[in-house]
Each structure stands twice: as structure tokens, then as C-alpha cells.
Design a protein around this nucleic acid. Structure first.
Lengths: 219, 219
DNA sequence: CGGACCCCTAAGCGCTTGCTCAGCTTCGGG
DNA sequence: CCCGAAGCTGAGCAAGCGCTTAGGGGTCCG
């Protein structure tokens, strides 16, 4: 009966497989759920330990502070999101295809893992000074990836974008905010949202005439 | 020396003029600043009272609880935002012009009053049950306003939007998220962001060919 | 001059918070 | 059979929380 509570976490398979002592992983998953539901500051260490089926003191064997838990979550989440973006950016294809791919998988992650993403994206300044600057560096890399694709699309004549930094910001902002409103019991699947958003983003950067030809072909 | 701290609030003139006992207004403005900086749950009533230059107990003369303060802020903020949207929606002009106007003033408000907007948009579920449902009703009205403009644009043949509810959601999401990232010491003015976003949104709904003709004419 | 009224403070109550610590159990190796 | 390391718990500490209460000064009207 050790695994009574924390079994059903987000529907997703195992994004936390890398967290090695099994008890530490249970605590971390419990913390993600609690932070996402109530927010970092409104979550108590007793609540986290309780969800993981442990006593309040057990938490401090695996993590020094509550803030370290948040940092671990934020770090792993940002690493994963950045990886998705870079994979899409480094793939073959036109700038349109790569931008659509990046948006699609970035958005899909924010929807599927919306509980993790909410913590990752909206509890940023609950982090301590050093941890926050470390995370901010990762976010700047995400920004650079998107900006690079857009710039290349402009240079190749595929896109018409008067304000590249501004549009980059808007694209990222649009994707990130998915974590705020997405709900698993809503009517849209993560894939549907990903496709919709990829289309919307291509429209934001598209040149005058045609261009959005065969891009929203099949689902 | 009574007005030492709370003088500079957001740069804006007086969005809280309607809050009538002057001491109550000072407390409310202090609460907006504190909630925006640290979040509702991380803010103490002592901090709010301190910023307003009062003792902790003074707060409870004007407000029953800390949650009532948040509700007052959220209510006034949502009323204001909804008013801006409705004004733009009810004005004369094509659907494109009205959509651009709505996005422009909605975004401008989120940038200018980004400290208020942050509280209004991101501390929603710190509200109690009854207060939250009241606020959620206001948000549904905002959604309806945008959806109406887009629908009319589609019916008039101005827009090409395959998924009206989804696009409505994305437009609102994009605007709202401005409150998260906008910073007064950033390089963009609220007006610039408003213009940029109005352009991006028009691109999201534009039909195939021309259409975005004279719409991003001057800066 | 007296007292009702309003706005505010000093003090503090009851409770919860993040975190600690002595001690119990389990288990593999000599 | 004993040992030490590792994982966990029950009890609890100091600090901070939201909120209350008794009372102190102004001001205005009788």
C-alpha cells in the first residue's frame, strides 16, 4: 500500500524518470502537483510529504529546502522544453516547417504537461537569486532559438516580419500561456492545440500573398 | 510626510479614483503593488499596511479580510478591461478596425497597468469560491466580445478563421500574457506593444490574399 | 465643556509555517 | 551475530501568519 496516492500524476508516462532515488521522485511529483494546484507559496511542506505518503520530515532527507524542490522542477522542465525547441530548429526543412514544428511540439508539451509547465512558467520568481538567474539563462536560449528560425525565414524571403524581436516575444508568449488556460477536461487535445497554434504562428509571420499553401494540409 | 512611499504606483494617473475613503485607497494601491511583486500568498497584511504607512490593524477597519482586498482589485480591474473591449467592439468601422482597436487598447492597458493586470490575471484562484465565480463571469463576457468581432469579420468576408473559439482564445491569451512579461524599464512603450500586437492579431485572422493593405500604415 | 463618533495603534491570541533532531527500523557485509 | 549506513518518523522549536481587542487621540455638535 505504499503507492496509494501518487500513481496518477498527469496522464503522461514518465517525464521524471531521471530523478533517481525513487522516494525523491515521489516527492518531486507530489510537489509538482501541489505547486500547480495552489502555487508555490500556498503549498506547505506537509502537504507535499503527505501526497507522497511520507511524514513531513522525510522531505528534508532528499531536499535541503522547499525552494530546492522548485528549482529541480524548474530546471528539468526548462531543459526539456529547450530540447524540444532545439530539435525542431535543427531539423531539415524550410523555415516555415521548422517554425511550425517548434511551435507544435512546444505547445503540445505545455498542454500535455500543463501541470509541470504551470510551475515552470509561473513560479519563476519564487526561486532564490542564484537559481533564478540560472533559469533565466535557459529562457534566453529558448528565445534565441525562435528568433533564429524567424530571422532565417525572413532572410530566405519566406516571412514578412517587420519586428523580429517583438514577434519572437509574442510567439513564445502565446505558447507559454497555454499552460495557464489548458485543462485536461477541456474539449481540445494537446495535438489539436499544437496544430492550431502552429497555423496561427505561421499566419503571424507570413508574407503578403499566398505562402500558407500546403501548410495546414492534413491533421 | 504622510505620502512618502505610495506615491509612484504605476506611472498612470488615477485608476483607483473611485475608491472613496482615502485611507482605503492607499491600502488598496499598496496591496496591488505587493501582490504584483510577490504574489498574493507571499504577501503579508503587515507588508500591505506598512506600504500604506499604517499599522497592521488599520487594514481591518476598511477591509474585512485580505481576500476582500484581492477581490476589490480584481473586480475593478476586470470591469475596466471589459469596458475597454466593449468600447472598441461597439465603435464604428470594419471588423478589422474594431478588432485592431480592441487589441490595441486591451494590450495597452495590460502594459501600462501591468502591475494591476498581473494581479487581476494571475491571482484569480486565490479568490474565494463565490468571488471567483463572479469574476469568471466577467471573463466570459470579455471572451464573448472578441468572439463576436471575429465572427462578424468572418461573416463579412474580411477574415479567414477556421476555428473561431480557438482563435478567440489565442487572441485573448496573447494579450493577457503581456502582463507577465512587460516591464516599465524595458525598451518598448505600451503604445508600441499595442500597435505590434494589433498587427499580429490581424495577421492571424486575415484572409488569403491582400487584406492587410493600409492597416499597418504609419507607426 | 462633555460626550459621541471615527480612525488609528499597541499588544497579543491562536495557529501554521519551514525546518530540526534524537531515535527507530531495515539490510548487506565481515 | 553484530555493525554501520541509509531511510524514515514523532515530537517539537522559533518565527511568522491573519486577525481581534482595548483603548487613545482628534473633531464636531450639543
Amino acid at each position: 500500500m505504499t503507492m496509494s496516492t501518487a500513481e496518477e500524476t498527469g496522464g503522461e508516462s514518465s517525464p521524471w524518470g531521471e530523478v533517481t532515488p525513487e522516494a525523491a521522485r515521489r516527492l518531486l511529483v507530489a510537489a509538482v502537483d501541489a505547486f500547480a494546484e495552489r502555487g508555490y507559496h500556498a503549498t506547505t511542506t506537509r502537504d507535499i510529504a503527505g501526497r507522497a505518503g511520507m511524514s513531513p520530515a522525510a522531505l528534508y532527507i532528499h531536499y535541503k529546502t522547499k525552494e530546492e524542490l522548485l528549482h529541480r522542477i524548474s530546471r528539468i522542465g526548462h531543459d526539456r522544453a529547450l530540447l524540444l525547441l532545439e530539435a525542431a530548429a535543427d531539423s531539415d526543412g524550410t523555415a516555415s516547417e521548422r517554425l511550425a514544428g517548434a511551435v507544435r511540439s512546444f505547445v503540445r508539451w505545455h498542454a500535455e504537461q500543463h501541470t509541470t509547465a504551470r510551475v515552470v512558467q509561473y513560479e519563476l520568481d519564487a526561486l532564490g537569486e542564484e537559481h533564478r538567474t540560472e533559469i533565466v539563462a535557459l529562457r534566453r536560449k529558448s528565445d534565441a532559438v525562435i528568433r533564429r528560425i524567424i530571422s532565417e525565414g525572413v532572410r530566405a524571403g519566406e516571412f514578412d516580419v517587420p519586428d523580429i524581436p517583438g514577434t519572437t516575444l509574442a510567439v513564445l508568449s502565446l505558447c507559454i500561456d497555454v499552460a495557464r488556460w489548458f485543462s485536461a477536461q477541456g474539449s481540445r487535445t494537446p495535438d489539436e492545440v499544437g496544430d492550431l497554434y502552429a497555423d496561427l504562428v505561421l499566419r503571424m509571420v507570413a508574407g503578403r500573398g499566398r505562402e500558407l499553401s500546403g501548410l495546414r494540409a492534413q491533421k
